Simulated scan of single mutants.
Amino acid sequence: MFSIITLMAIYLAIFLIGMTVMRSGLLQLSEDRTKNFITKFTDYPWKGLLIGIIITGLLQSSSAVMVITVGLVAAGYLSFYQSIGIMLGSNIGSTFITELITIDITPFIFPILILGFILLFSKRKLPFSFGSTMFGLGCLFVAMNGFESLAAPLSTFPKVQEFLTLTNEHHLFGVGIGTLLTAIIQSSSATTGISMSFLSHDLLSLQAGIAIMLGANIGTCVTGYLASIGSIKEAKLTAFAHIWLNVIGVTLFFPLIPFLSRFVELLASSADVQLAHSSLIFNIICSVLALPFAKQFAKFVERIHG
């Protein structure tokens, strides 16, 4: 079992490295515009939502966007109220990577890695950025294939079987696992990716996978909270608002897991795609429903943590 756990840790490290390298490449392509986009076009919550979607889609990390947002609020470039639209958009943008990793590009993984690796040696910004993006993307798919190959061997161990049974039978346990795992590894995409590997082997039910996904949305708030420690009051309010937004959304959606499960089963036949779709639907609905109440939500957070 130790060797399998070691391999799982290695693939997880490859996934996180891939995310970091790809994010670095995309950020270098847009680093001069990212802060300008955020500071200039967030005077209304709906604009902030669109900016949050775009920037998170580019950086492939809602945590990174929240760290940037908390930093801008702390520096006085953004108000706490302006940050709410961005966090709503970042939740939607974070689902793009889960949709992406469900695509089967196995024959192209090795060429993508090789070409990306070669471009990493370029001294010019544009080729280097493209190389980083391609190499990081290749690492993501290598890790996903690794997760899938280890799912079946892992399930043969009694403790893992107990864990899977408990998660399948008690969805609240799945939410807790998703929250804890994401808080530790700082990537909701990685948590969802691991869940997909068990789903593909019918070791985890779709409803249990959705529960873990919901928990991952809470766990991803930890990064923004850590970034706010020691900052001004408005920066801390931004971090608290992100936590409240996801906790409320998960609380409201938790009883609807069976309905969401049946709905996404109509949209796709593959379990991993169904889970990706459920993440997208959850975040879109939560953000769209919360958007008209951005001002009231801001006052609620200020009242609680003011």
Results as ranks from 00 to 15, higher is better:
1 M>N: 11
6 T>V: 14
8 M>Q: 10
9 A>E: 03
11 Y>E: 01
14 I>R: 05
14 I>L: 11
17 I>P: 05
20 T>G: 10
20 T>F: 12
25 G>W: 00
28 Q>D: 15
32 D>I: 12
35 K>T: 13
35 K>I: 15
37 F>V: 08
37 F>C: 04
38 I>A: 10
39 T>H: 06
41 F>R: 06
42 T>K: 05
45 P>W: 03
49 L>A: 05
51 I>P: 04
52 G>T: 00
58 L>D: 00
59 L>H: 06
60 Q>R: 07
66 M>E: 02
67 V>E: 06
72 L>H: 00
72 L>V: 13
74 A>V: 05
74 A>R: 01
75 A>C: 10
77 Y>F: 14
80 F>L: 05
80 F>N: 08
84 I>R: 00
84 I>N: 07
88 L>H: 13
92 I>L: 05
93 G>V: 04
95 T>V: 02
97 I>L: 15
101 I>L: 12
102 T>I: 10
106 T>C: 10
115 L>Q: 06
115 L>M: 13
117 F>G: 14
118 I>M: 07
120 L>R: 01
128 F>H: 14
129 S>H: 04
131 G>R: 01
137 L>T: 06
137 L>F: 15
138 G>Y: 06
139 C>Q: 06
140 L>D: 04
143 A>C: 04
145 N>V: 00
145 N>R: 11
146 G>K: 05
148 E>C: 10
150 L>H: 11
151 A>S: 10
157 F>P: 07
161 Q>M: 14
163 F>R: 03
168 N>Y: 08
168 N>G: 12
171 H>S: 04
173 F>G: 03
174 G>I: 09
176 G>W: 04
178 G>F: 09
179 T>N: 11
179 T>E: 06
179 T>H: 03
185 I>E: 04
188 S>F: 03
189 S>K: 06
195 S>K: 09
199 L>C: 01
207 Q>I: 09
214 L>M: 14
215 G>D: 08
215 G>T: 06
216 A>F: 09
218 I>E: 00
222 V>R: 03
223 T>M: 09
228 S>I: 01
228 S>W: 00
228 S>V: 08
230 G>N: 10
243 I>Y: 10
245 L>N: 10
246 N>H: 01
247 V>P: 03
248 I>G: 03
249 G>P: 01
250 V>I: 13
252 L>N: 07
258 P>C: 05
266 L>D: 14
268 A>K: 11
269 S>W: 15
272 D>L: 08
274 Q>H: 08
274 Q>C: 08
276 A>F: 12
280 L>P: 01
281 I>H: 02
283 N>L: 02
284 I>R: 05
285 I>V: 13
293 F>N: 09
295 K>R: 14
297 F>T: 03
297 F>V: 06
302 E>R: 13
